[in-house]
């Protein structure tokens, strides 16, 4: 499937219950083909996805994190996704400054009727992460590279 020495990225997807998760359901229900790299986690609102969850995903070896929610103005909780829209750019900046490429985090809006879009977003994001390669945090134990900590132990 991939040309880059068989690297298949692991992507954590935070999908909102009301739009994106239903969108993913629709993509599956209508037998759309898309990359199987995203491990979906259903959250009640994209606005509940804390930066802590995102960085924890990276620390536990995720190569990318995808956050999807309802379109602006269509949030089940009226303005929950405004939080997401404001928060994610800040998280991206911080990730970039600490040394994790901000391209590894992606925010997009997928409504319940956009199964096609969900499939496209997932496939495109998987391709992007595949070209970026494995996460630089992979293989580190609490920040240190595994071999080093074993050698010093």
């Amino acid at each position: 499937m991939s040309a880059d020495n068989g690297f298949e990225p692991t992507i954590i997807g935070f999908l909102c219950n009301w739009c994106s998760y239903a969108g993913a359901d629709l993509a599956g229900g209508s037998r759309k083909k898309y990359a199987a790299n995203v491990l979906p986690i259903r959250v009640m609102c994209s606005g509940t996805v804390s930066p802590h969850h995102i960085v924890k995903a990276f620390q536990m070896g995720a190569d990318g994190v995808l956050v999807t929610g309802c379109h602006i103005g269509e949030c089940h909780y009226m303005k929950g996704n405004y939080m997401t829209a404001k928060r994610i750019p800040v998280v991206k900046e911080l990730l970039g400054f600490i040394g994790i490429s901000p391209d590894r985090l992606m925010l997009d809006w997928v409504s319940a009727s956009e199964g096609e879009k969900f499939a496209r977003v997932v496939t495109e994001f998987s391709d992007k992460i595949r070209s970026l390669g494995p996460s630089p945090l992979k293989g580190r134990v609490h920040g240190r590279v595994k071999e080093e900590s074993q050698a010093s132990a």
Binding site: P51, Q59, I98, H142
Partner: peptide, 26 residues
């Protein structure tokens, strides 16, 4: 929070520990 920063380990979970602080400081 023990789920984010496990106890008994120094240095603490990197970069999670400092990332959380920085995010709260923003």
């Amino acid at each position: 929070d023990k789920n984010l920063v496990p106890g008994g380990i120094v240095p603490p979970a990197t970069p999670v520990f400092h990332f959380i602080k920085a995010m709260h400081m923003a």
